[in-house]
Design a protein around this nucleic acid. Structure first.
Length: 151
DNA sequence: TAGGCCATCTGGTCCT
DNA sequence: AGGACCAGATGGCCTA
């Protein structure tokens, strides 16, 4: 994978080199400097790799809590962010709506009417048959468009 | 084979 | 000075 760019990590370093060891040390000091620059570059690469791995771990954790219908293909990073945005907005709407109703029961009745014992089982039976259904349809009465990727 | 997505390298900038 | 963060470049892998 790797970039085929030439390694110029040491570029610009020679000019500021002040060698105090007299003639013959230029090559030695130069190569030492190059060596040290190369080491620093490698260390920086490793840090960057770890940083990106941490970022990817965070993306994986985000993917786990964000709705994702169809488990066959994981969301890309961009899609994950857009989905998280939509999801948060949808949850915010739910909270705002809940505040409009005086009691929790009123709110639950509003959203969960179709979750009566019988229809619930029928519903779940149907849903289990098709795993491509939006996660959103399983919670309360939200429609898929509420979780479409935001633009 | 083109396009999307990703990992990695790299140099620049900012911060501590 | 060294580390963190960022964006650009590049090449590999996968899918339509």
């Amino acid at each position: 994978m790797k970039s085929c760019k030439s390694n110029n990590a040491d570029s610009g370093l020679e000019s500021d080199m002040q060698c105090k060891s007299g003639t013959g040390c230029i090559m030695k000091c130069g190569s030492e400097r190059m060596e040290s620059a190369a080491k620093r570059r490698l260390a920086a690469n490793a840090r960057e790799r770890r940083r990106m791995q941490g970022l990817n771990t965070a993306f994986d954790r985000l993917r786990k809590v964000v709705p994702q219908w169809g488990q066959d293909k994981k969301l890309s990073k961009y899609e994950t962010l857009q989905m998280a945005l939509s999801y948060i907005m949808a949850l915010t709407r739910i909270l705002a709506e809940a505040e409009r109703y005086s009691t929790e029961r009123d709110w639950i009745n509003l959203h969960c009417e179709h979750f009566h014992q019988e229809s619930y089982h029928t519903y779940m039976g149907q849903k289990m048959a098709t795993d491509s259904d939006p996660y959103a349809q399983r919670i309360f009465s939200f429609q898929p468009e509420h979780f479409q990727i935001a633009n």
